[in-house]
Design a protein around this nucleic acid. Structure first.
Length: 640
DNA sequence: ATAGGGTTAG
């Protein structure tokens, strides 16, 4: 059929139909010197060759002639714009596609929407979506997942409701994105029901999304249920469940699942190793963590994995290894710097932490909320009041970070430890926040160190008003009264505790020997070698007495949340763990202990003397910080 | 054309 014949045919069509044709009669007349068919061919070729400038030029000519190509060609062009981040060109393409009253297919509009989402132009994407006359499951899912990615959970959930009302059934793509938007266990349950009804519960994407969201809501049992229904193996689902346990501080659970994963024949990849390292971090398993390090070397460019490795070494008290990982990292982000700064500070190297913060500023990485917490922690544990004030003020002025409750808590800790209780109280008064436990607790700690009974009593009562379950504070309050021989008040506190059913957590210490964890719990003699351990402990105490050790049971006010006086200081769990470490770890090996309560003054002296007499390095990690005992002194400078 | 897993404090 000749060109004239086509024109004739088209001119007979109603205008609404002829708009959809690739060229109009006017167009073919104007294109006498450039046949439309070859223009279209050129355009198609340029698109597939990814020759963006030429494709755009051809498109321009087509637009002047009112020509349109097919949807697949346009989607090639859009891919090309995306890969070059060519936003201006992308907009030209969009305008061209809608020019001349042309109505693109749903498929093509979806591609355009997706393009704007990837360019982070959600308003444009939403505008296109709103204009659509026919929205399919892909259109809806693209928008929903876009809102999930920017954490506009409300919008995502609302769109899902509208989608269902519109008669479009969500598919596995929709569910695997929208699950992240759950803002309550209730709507999570509803979505899970929908998944069951649609028969999508066996999809691995849906499954891993379910595990992940249940874990985020702390529902490990539900996560395990979803995981347990898995028939076909999938490494991402494994990573989801291992991550679920690691993130909920169940390191044991994470490590057990990791073993099962390996037995099931799956290779550990970056997310697996990251979660395993996090589990080691939580359990203070330096030996296992070091073993994992070997496998990390395969992925030595992975930033997140290196950050997890760095944190593991910091939290296991192995600063030399941490520093070498940090120095070797080719890429460092705000988390790497923050981890290293906090790690140095918690291990007692405050000056180094502050020096590193200066380096961080020079490096061009902007500190965040958490970085500053590490910096203030460093100041408070080194008694650097002036530096503390300087950084506290500069966070708002220089970095535009509003100080949060935690930052005030750190400042109160800093002032309180330095004996400036008045200034600390003044800061609480000036603070715009309503004081809570994060504020009162450091004040209480300061009272403990500086033996200020009146303020301590006040602060303790404030903490208990806010958290009537806080065992450590009851103990402290009771000890404060005991110290002033206020026995009736002591009895009253104990009665309150009993009535509320508050029980003090027993002191517990852990030590890793040959990749096995040995736990020592106060008053528990179930360790198979307990007789030998006690013998060793008695010998040690005898040796220490010779160099002047006197068991001190008077650490009343020094023991805020530590094991209590009447727990019999002699059997505090870390003493047993130290004795066990001495007998089972070869000479020259560092004894590393993790415990659940803060170390008491007597155990602190005990550890210092043991380190000297036995010529050992001892590291004790308590819930807040680390003590490196060496040659009779501790890295905390007796200031904790 | 649309989807899932990992890191700092508390």
């Amino acid at each position: 059929m000749g060109m004239k014949a086509i024109s004739k045919l088209k001119s007979m069509m109603p205008p609404s139909l002829s708009r959809h044709c690739s060229h109009t009669p006017t167009a073919s007349r104007n294109a006498a010197n450039h046949p439309p068919s070859s223009l279209l061919d050129d355009f198609t070729r340029f698109c597939y060759q990814r020759d963006l400038p030429r494709a755009i030029r051809a498109m321009d000519a087509m637009q002047r002639l009112g020509l349109h190509a097919d949807a697949v060609t346009y989607s090639e062009l859009i891919k090309c714009c995306l890969s070059r981040r060519a936003i201006a060109e992308a907009t030209l393409v969009r305008n061209h596609i809608f020019s001349g009253g042309y109505e693109p297919k749903t498929f093509l509009v979806n591609t355009l929407i997706n393009m704007y989402v990837k360019f982070d132009h959600l308003e444009e994407a939403q505008a296109l979506f709103d204009q659509m006359t026919e929205r399919n499951v892909v259109s809806w899912t693209t928008m929903i997942s876009a809102y999930c990615n920017v954490k506009l959970n409300d919008k995502a959930l609302k769109l899902m409701v509208l989608m269902i009302r519109d008669g479009v059934r969500p598919n596995m793509f929709t569910y695997s994105s929208v699950l992240r938007a759950c803002d309550s266990l209730f709507n999570l349950g509803q979505l899970h029901c929908g998944i069951f009804k649609a028969g999508l519960d066996s999809d691995v994407f849906v499954r891993s999304a379910l595990i992940d969201i249940y874990a985020k809501w702390g529902e490990l049992r539900c996560a395990l249920c979803v995981f347990g229904e898995m028939v076909t193996g999938d490494s991402v689902v494994w990573n989801s469940i291992i991550g679920a346990f690691a993130q909920n501080n169940d390191g044991d659970g994470a490590l057990n699942l990791f073993k099962r994963m390996k037995r099931a024949g799956f290779q550990a990849d970056q997310p697996t190793l990251t979660s395993v390292l996090r589990a080691c971090t939580g359990l203070a398993l330096l030996e296992l963590g070091t073993q994992v390090h070997v496998h990390v070397l395969k992925y030595d460019q992975d930033l997140i994995l290196n950050n997890a490795l760095l944190d593991m070494y910091c939290k296991c008290g192995s600063l030399e290894d941490a520093k070498s990982v940090f120095d070797r990292m080719v890429e460092k982000d705000v988390i790497s710097w923050s981890t290293m700064i906090a790690g140095l500070a918690q291990n007692g190297y405050s000056r180094e932490a502050l020096n590193l913060f200066e380096l961080m500023k020079v490096s061009g990485t902007k500190p965040n909320y958490i970085t500053i917490l590490g910096v203030l922690f460093a100041c408070s544990h080194a008694g650097l009041v002036e530096d503390g004030w300087y950084h506290f003020r500069s966070m708002k002025n220089v970095y535009k970070i509003d100080p949060g409750r935690e930052h005030f808590g750190c400042m109160i800790d800093l002032l309180g430890r330095a004996g400036k209780l008045d200034e600390a109280i003044k800061l609480i008064d000036e603070m715009e926040y309503e004081p809570d436990a994060i504020i009162w607790r450091p004040l209480l700690d300061a009272c403990r160190v500086h033996q200020n009974m009146d303020v301590a009593e006040y602060a303790a009562k404030q903490v208990l008003n806010l958290d009537p379950e806080d065992a450590g504070t009851y103990i402290l309050l009771s000890n404060i009264y005991a110290n002033s021989q206020r026995w009736e008040d002591v009895a009253e506190v104990r009665k309150n505790m009993r009535e509320r059913g508050v029980r003090k957590e027993p002191g517990c210490s852990w030590i890793e020997v040959n990749k096995q964890i040995h736990a020592f719990i106060l008053g528990d003699s179930s360790h198979p070698q307990i007789v030998e351990i006690n013998r060793q402990l008695n010998l040690l105490i005898h040796k220490l007495r010779e160099v002047g050790y006197i068991p001190d049971t008077s650490f009343v006010l020094r023991d805020l949340e530590g094991e209590q006086k009447d727990d019999s200081i002699r059997y505090h769990s870390e003493k047993l763990a130290i004795a066990f470490g001495l007998m089972s770890l070869s000479r020259g090996k560092t004894i590393r202990i993790r415990k659940n309560l803060r170390i008491c003054g007597d155990c602190h002296i005990f550890a210092k003397l043991t380190a000297k007499v036995e010529n050992r390095t001892i590291v004790i990690r308590d819930p807040i910080r680390y003590h490196h005992f060496q040659d009779g002194i501790c890295s905390c400078g007796d200031y904790w």
